[in-house]
Design a protein around this nucleic acid. Structure first.
Length: 184
DNA sequence: CCAACGATGGTCT
DNA sequence: GACCATCGTTGGC
């Protein structure tokens, strides 16, 4: 399994979001396959629509981990994209558990495998991802690998949980995968 | 089954 | 003080 190079992330955000599907992430020695992502550029639904203290990572880094708190109780995992100076990030919305499933079940307080990582807040709970990782480079606390897995078909839809920019089909997921947060 | 809602705290105006 | 890139529960059918 080879780690993704920094150049993988320093590209068009929508392209990176699609290319991350099927890749393996490793955190706290647990492993999972990415099955659902969303692209966030400088659009009205994105934190990077305006540069603020929180969103500055999206402008100033590429290939770094961006973790933020949402609704006061959950965290969301992103990877920053584009070349430095250009804002962008990919939200990881769902992953398929591969290794360390027993620890994921404990952290999520459920034995239902389909409910471990099928949402952005859920997967952070399962893998123990917190804001402590915010701003770290990919390859330190969070690793991303290409294990050669080929995605058969990529589906897209509008992004979930936002009201602005519903016309942009920037949510991507692996067709038919049972671990995505929703089927369509 | 599924739509509605409350929990909960950081971020921004 | 309003708003959230969410989730689990509740209460109606």
């Amino acid at each position: 399994m080879k780690s993704l190079p920094a150049t993988f992330f320093a590209r068009n955000t929508v392209q990176v979001a699609q290319d991350l599907l099927g890749k393996v992430i490793e955190v706290n020695s647990m492993k999972a396959r990415i099955v659902e992502t969303e692209a966030y550029g400088r659009d009205p639904a994105s934190h990077a629509f305006k540069k603020t203290p929180r969103s500055s990572l999206m402008f100033d880094t590429s290939g770094h981990v961006y973790v933020y708190l949402i609704y006061g109780m959950y965290e969301c995992l992103n990877f920053t994209t584009e070349k430095v100076g250009e804002p962008g990030a990919v939200l990881i919305r769902a992953v398929e558990p591969l290794q360390g499933m027993e620890r994921m079940k404990k952290k999520r307080k459920t034995d239902d495998v389909d409910n471990l990582c099928s949402g952005p807040g859920k997967l952070c709970q399962a893998l123990g991802i917190t804001r402590k990782l915010n701003g770290t480079k990919v390859g330190i606390g969070v690793n991303v690998y290409d294990d050669g897995y080929k995605v058969a078909k990529i589906m897209s839809s509008s992004r979930i949980g936002i009201k602005d920019a519903q016309d942009l089909p920037w949510r991507f997921f692996i067709e038919g995968n049972r671990f995505v947060s929703r089927a369509s």
